[in-house]
Design a protein around this nucleic acid. Structure first.
Lengths: 343, 343
DNA sequence: CTGAAAGCGCTAACAA
DNA sequence: TTGTTAGCGCTTTCAG
């Protein structure tokens, strides 16, 4: 195998010698600890730079009981979402000298909890970030608590006391989205929800209902289908909804991928969008603005949420405040329009 | 910060004591080294299991000069592709007790080489995997060689002597794709290529030209546009091509994302697909089968390629054979059809 | 404010 | 086949 190392790596001793101080002083300087005279501090910095010194993370970790690793635990419902969150987490980690360790928790694996435990015990990350739906998975949370692992979540609804949660107001966002449809004259609005057990998805349903009720409408049971965030489920349930005896004039898919599926279903059935049907998604991922017609959707700051979550974990005091709520934005594009005149 | 650790972690000494052997023997057993009597081996395994022992990676790394880390260096032209490769790399790593360390090399950052160097020196990964176009980036390769870092590449065209390259025959694949179009009667076939400097993309152009020539056609300069693998560029160049005085009857986009963009461009111009225009992509990513109409494309085994690359790096002898070529497959879907009768 | 000593948990090198 | 002795490079502790 062989690892990546030059003839002989520069150690803290080398820096100490060149700076004319002890190793401990170098350590103090490099870790921004107090109690070092300014001039020594500068000498150390200079020596370190001259030598191109990089602390050995294994040694730091072993001696200091810190790994400089932040793990991102993810399930896999909406790859675009996960990727965006991952990007944000990654950026924050690297900006602070940490490394990102992605770890997939396969929802279909019987031994997923054993694997997770194994991961936590071997990787020994300094913190763990959970993206939905893992952030509401009680079994996972139990293991995290049990192993005493600090963690933060994105869009968690489960009240993990004292753990930072970064989110945005999904209920209000979903409501705004449906109100936009209602403002366009739609009254027959169907929804394709996210998977069961995905609490953030459930919250979007609540927003949908809020909007309907606010307009004096009541949700029709046959206008609600449970998708799984895949494009395929958007196709399947889009078709199902459009084949209903009295079909909806607008469909709210709980994420963009499913909305794209609905587009596909509508086209395959010969419907024009938005002339015959309005479609809205949620997330504003890459697809949303690239498909035809581009999707009206909610832009949620996923990468930013990931960034904040990682920052919280790396900060000296990761708790307080428990929750941080970032802004969302309604993005209106060509997939929505007035109710068809013929209906 | 505080790291994730139980009251007192179980060490190799604990296992040694319980098994009645020395720490070194435990080490031998756990690392599958020879020269341990079978019964002792079993006692150690048992003791290790009883105690729920997990070796401390920092200690292993410090003592053994191995980090158990495989880095994935990526640029960002086609997120789906990168994600798929990453999944394969990740799976292989975890299956072998390694961790995956993703690292983004921002092509727009002036100090990208410094950052890369810094990453390599601090993370000290045991191996590095390059996805295109980084695998053909001379500056990056130089740094890798300079720091003596073992690496493997996906779809590299640059002859990195002695470094494993996992690929598939992109030239043949592109040719097959275009031959499929030609078989359908198309003669006016345009191509939207990948970005300059992306050698794998260049190879696809070669395949396109091969097919044309094989059919006695010659490439038209105005039928070749340089995209950048984004959906947006598919839209832009799709529109441009379709607005040509004598427009193509088929468009080959060098990846699926751009093909989706072409679909969008065609729809926005009022064209039906495949009635008025045939479109083909490359990759067979999630979009390809989810958009309407679903794309005829090439399925390349990206995840598998990532998996193999990682395996090569983790194997005791990472070199030989230099290149591994995996299979591709032509996937025919509804985005291609006969030439419009009216043309 | 600074440094010396000790040790984190493991494996390499050597000895038995 | 096994165990012993030394560190790996850093941070902790504690003395100055």
């Amino acid at each position: 195998m062989g690892s990546a190392r030059l003839p002989r790596a520069i150690t803290i001793e080398d820096v100490a010698e060149r700076a004319g101080v002890s190793a401990k002083t170098v350590s103090r300087v490099l870790n921004n600890e107090p109690n070092v005279r300014q001039n020594k501090r500068e000498m150390v910095m200079q020596a370190s730079r001259d030598l191109g010194y990089r602390p050995n993370p294994a040694a730091r970790s072993l001696a200091g009981a810190k790994s400089f690793l932040i793990a991102h635990l993810y399930d896999n419902p909406a790859p675009e979402y996960i990727a965006a969150a991952n990007d944000g987490i990654y950026a924050a980690c690297r900006a602070n000298g940490y490394f990102l360790l992605p770890e997939y928790v396969d929802p279909k694996a019987n031994d997923r909890l054993d694997r997770l435990m194994n991961f936590l015990m071997t990787a020994r990350a300094d913190g763990v970030i959970l993206t939905p739906p893992l952030c509401d998975d009680i079994e996972v949370l139990n293991i995290l608590n049990q192993t005493d692992t600090p963690y933060a979540s994105l869009s968690a609804t489960h009240p993990s006391i004292g753990r930072p949660v970064i989110n945005h107001d999904e209920r209000a966002a979903a409501r705004d989205l449906v109100l936009h449809l209602i403002g366009l004259g739609h009254r027959e609005i169907a929804m394709i929800t996210g998977p069961a057990g995905h609490n953030a998805a459930r919250v979007r349903e609540l927003g949908y209902i809020d909007a309907l009720q606010q307009a004096g409408l009541s949700p029709r049971p046959d206008f609600s289908e449970r998708g799984d965030y895949t494009m395929r489920s958007g196709i399947v349930f889009g078709q199902k909804l459009l084949c209903l005896p009295s079909r909806p004039t607008a469909i709210f898919a709980a994420n963009d991928d499913m909305a794209v599926g609905v587009l596909t279903a509508a086209f395959s059935l010969g419907y024009q969008i938005p002339n015959d049907l309005s479609v809205v998604g949620y997330d504003d991922n890459r697809l949303a603005s690239a498909v035809w017609p581009p999707l009206t959707t909610i832009r949620q700051p996923v990468a930013e949420m990931g960034r904040r979550a990682a920052e919280r974990l790396m900060s000296p005091d990761p708790l307080q405040p428990d929750r941080e709520t970032l802004d969302f934005k309604l993005i209106i594009r060509a997939s929505t329009g007035p109710v068809p005149a013929y209906l």
